[in-house]
Design a protein around this nucleic acid. Structure first.
Length: 448
RNA sequence: GGUGGGAUGGCUGAGUGGUCGAAAGCGCACGACUCGAAAUCGUGUAACCCCUUACGGGGUUCGAGGGUUCGAAUCCCUCUCCCACCGCCA
């Protein structure tokens, strides 16, 4: 949610932001409703004031005077009820619209319509002599092979560590099993990342996977993201209606962990709060039919270590935390020796609330390109307003905190580059050095 | 799943239809006393919204929603959450 007084002050900027982000919201309609609401509020409050003052006097009155006052108040109550009803309706529409108003992107954000217009800002690849020949060398790929490489599915099936067919059998498309060393590899990469962040002062969380509407709304997934979200309910008969329990499966632990302090007032000296949530994540992936159907790239359920930060309300503090979050994620990729690039996400590929966003894309040989593996977002006070998270400044002023988040690792998507880049000619996969301690010292995944 | 007890300001807790946004205590802030401190005494101490340059005024909020009433923390209905015990259970 944005600062409404700011919207009143410079509506054109919000109209512009909505246009650049590709978000449909009628700012003029909002302003009109806003005025209507305030006019109605004035009328209703005046009537309430009258009622309150007369009601206070009633007990001191007697006889006909009292009867007259009560009669008058009865009539007033009726008109008041009507007015309140109109106000309520206006307020509901007003509230709905204000949730749709996007934040204004920082000036440095490139303007563009979708992810094809994101702008690369840097690349990293491990130091190793580039192969002079072999698959990929002529295109200048960061990873080359002197044999014909397999994709992660072929590797996973041959090694019996990924089973997509049986996943689909019991849970439908975009489902899978990790088994054996595949299961262990995923846990290894998650735990390695969690340890990395813990060492850097981040508090790990295992948060609720099911949350209420307020958490979804507060982190600004709702309204708008309902179609991407699984709702929890009870189905009493096969093909019968689903009775909602009012809970939703999180698509990221950002939802639970950012909401952790909702409704609270923190102390200035307790900021920044550095948190990381490890959780399963659930996504319906509605509207992606036919997109990334093969393999573990786009799936309904995965696991992620997510970084979440609450910091003081200054653009500088936010910017510092943003680069810290990026650095943490890059350190993990560097430890895993996976080539990646960082892009500035353009306006059209940003969410409603974000003011700045970077994606990290990791090299995936089978895609012959970089695939998104991380997403680092700065919100300023957009989420904090919705979640009502404040802090008290040194001067005793209460302000909304700034929130940020970034993936630190998401699996099994990260298994794509790991398996594909670390594969050997004989079909085995070398385990990245950093993960070997988390696999009991094991150095290779081989067919068992 | 069953039974009983709860939910009031930063905290404890009183309040069962009208001058109650709410006693008292604790905490906190300021002042007095003191060389200074403790103790003591005094004063003050909720959030949000609307109008106002400001001073100030008004509204809403006693878990949430609805109802009764001229008027609800207080009465009625529904729901949520917490605590205790019983049953079942990873």
């Amino acid at each position: 949610m944005v600062d409404l007084s700011d919207v009143r002050k410079r509506p054109e900027e919000y109209r512009d932001a909505a246009k650049k982000k590709g978000i449909a919201v009628d700012i003029a309609k909002f302003l009109k409703l806003d005025e209507e609401r305030r006019a109605l509020l004035a009328v209703v409050e005046e009537m309430r004031a009258k009622r309150n003052s007369v009601s206070k006097q009633v007990p001191t009155m007697k006889g006909t005077e009292k009867e007259k006052a009560i009669k008058e108040m009865k009539e007033l109550a009726e008109t008041l009820k009507e007015k309140e009803h109109v106000l309520e309706k206006t307020e509901a529409a007003w509230q709905h619209l204000q949730l749709l108003i996007p934040s204004i992107p920082l000036p440095k954000v490139p303007v563009g319509k979708d992810d094809t217009e994101n702008v690369e800002i840097r690349r990293w690849a491990p130091h190793q002599s580039p192969a002079s020949a072999g698959s990929g060398a002529e295109q200048g790929d960061p990873v080359t092979f002197d044999f014909e490489p397999k994709d992660h599915i072929a590797l996973g099936e041959a090694l019996d560590i990924i089973d997509v067919l049986r996943g689909v059998k019991i849970a439908g498309s975009r489902s899978y099993f990790l088994k054996g060393d595949g299961a262990r590899l995923e846990l290894a990469v998650l735990l390695f990342t969690l340890d990395h962040l813990t060492k850097k002062g981040y508090t790990p969380f295992l948060p609720p996977l099911m949350v209420n509407y307020d958490a979804m709304m507060g982190t600004s997934y709702f309204p708008g993201g309902e179609e991407q979200t699984y709702a929890i309910g009870v189905q009493k008969a096969k093909d019968g209606p689903l009775e909602s329990d009012g809970f939703f499966l999180i698509g990221t632990s950002e939802v639970s962990v950012t909401s952790y302090h909702s409704g609270e007032v923190l102390k200035h000296e307790d900021l920044p709060r550095r948190y990381c949530g490890m959780s399963n994540c659930f996504r319906r992936e509605a509207g992606t039919y036919g997109k990334d159907t093969k393999g573990l790239y786009r799936i309904h359920q995965f696991q992620k270590v997510e970084q979440v930060v609450l910091c003081e309300a200054s653009p500088e503090a936010s910017a510092n935390m943003h680069s810290e979050l990026l650095t943490n994620a890059e350190e993990v990729l560097q430890a895993l020796e996976l080539p990646y690039r960082v892009v500035d996400v353009c306006t059209g590929d940003m969410g409603r609330g974000q003011v700045y966003k970077n994606d990290i894309e990791t090299w995936m040989p089978s895609r012959k390109g970089y695939g998104e593996t991380h997403s680092c977002s700065t919100f300023h006070d957009f989420q904090a307003r919705r979640l009502n998270i404040k802090y008290e400044t040194k001067t005793g002023e209460k302000k909304f905190v700034h929130t940020l988040n970034n993936t630190c690792i998401a699996s099994p998507r990260i298994l794509i580059p790991i398996l594909e880049i670390y594969q050997n000619k004989d079909g085995s996969v070398t385990i990245p050095k950093a993960l070997q301690p988390y696999m009991g010292g094991q150095k290779k995944i081989v067919k068992r």
